[in-house]
Write a protein that binds this DNA or RNA. Structure first.
Lengths: 165, 165
DNA sequence: TTGGAATGTCAACATAGCTGACCTAGACTG
DNA sequence: CAGTCTAGGTCAGCTATGTTGACATTCCAA
């Protein structure tokens, strides 16, 4: 092992370091969701609605099945969320063109407006954190997060990332 | 602004980059909790029990109030979790020595065993991610996470980190 | 053309948050 | 010492979001 890369003391892999990473992840995720949660509270919506809006905004026309796989919940659970969003006029569900079993999902103007509001709040915190940490830290942050995903989720993430820029 | 630090193009702060960060956080958190969740499922315990065990292991003798503040839930919610853990003999609740209103919480041998099992699973994934990403990425990861926490949570996190190493 | 597979919906239930009200025991203070 | 505050526990009931099971519709292939 070289002294520079392979041979570093690996101090960052001690159990204590790993546990600090775990706790950092826990506390940071709370911050990460805090702002949208605050906006949603009292609106009869929750985090699940936010997630649905986010990914429909990200991939307009996506199907229920697709969304299911991304969110990792059962279709029954997603369906309840989707139903309220459709009833409230935030999401439009169109019968699939080629396959009529499918439903293609779109945000209405109103849905897009709420999504933007939530997204702005979350991005704003992200931006502060990124700015405070600097570009190199951000690159490291992304690298570690990608390595932490399950294989299937990583594939979905990368597909979204590359397909959506 | 200098060309080196203040004057970089700030590409990492574009909305698209920020949104990728948001999605990375979402997918990574799923991986982060997946292994303990798998162990817990079918045990009549959930993520809430895991969190309680973790922080009791981290700070043995902690009080209910303390745990409440760290976990950010109501006492009613925590109490339900704590009660089952005490009933099942995983956690011991001793009347406070100096202030008898307080309860000091400790893991029993059995509780410590389960905590270790959950913790090992979570650390193992963390270790793989850290190893794959390398020490510099890990440092950046931690920096961004700390910047993402709410002020109060960051204080708690740092207190745990510095007091507990 | 018919039977299986895929897509989505409805109903019922479990878990884990939450608020609000109220209790005991112990600590503190005028 | 009386009154008040604090730590913790409990009961009742609500909400959000997950689960499984049963079912309808649609598509496709034998």
């Amino acid at each position: 092992m070289s002294d520079v890369h392979g041979g570093e003391n690996l101090l960052f892999l001690t159990d204590e370091q790993l546990r600090q990473g775990i706790e950092a992840m826990f506390f940071a995720y709370r911050g990460f969701t805090a702002d949208p949660d605050r906006i949603l509270e009292g609106m009869a919506y929750g985090r699940a609605h936010h997630r649905a809006l986010h990914f429909i905004a990200r991939a307009p026309g996506t199907t229920v099945n697709n969304l299911l796989a991304i969110l990792g919940v059962t279709k029954q659970s997603l369906n309840r969320v989707l139903r309220t969003l459709v009833e409230d006029g935030l999401v439009e569900s169109r019968v699939g063109k080629s396959d009529k079993r499918e439903r293609n999902l779109f945000l209405t103007e109103q849905g897009a407006a709420l999504e933007r509001k939530l997204s702005d709040a979350q991005r704003s915190r992200m931006r502060s954190a990124y700015r405070a940490a600097g570009p190199e830290a951000v690159a490291g942050f992304r690298t570690v997060l990608e390595a932490m995903m399950d294989g299937e989720m990583r594939r979905r993430y990368l597909r979204l990332k590359d397909g959506g820029s």
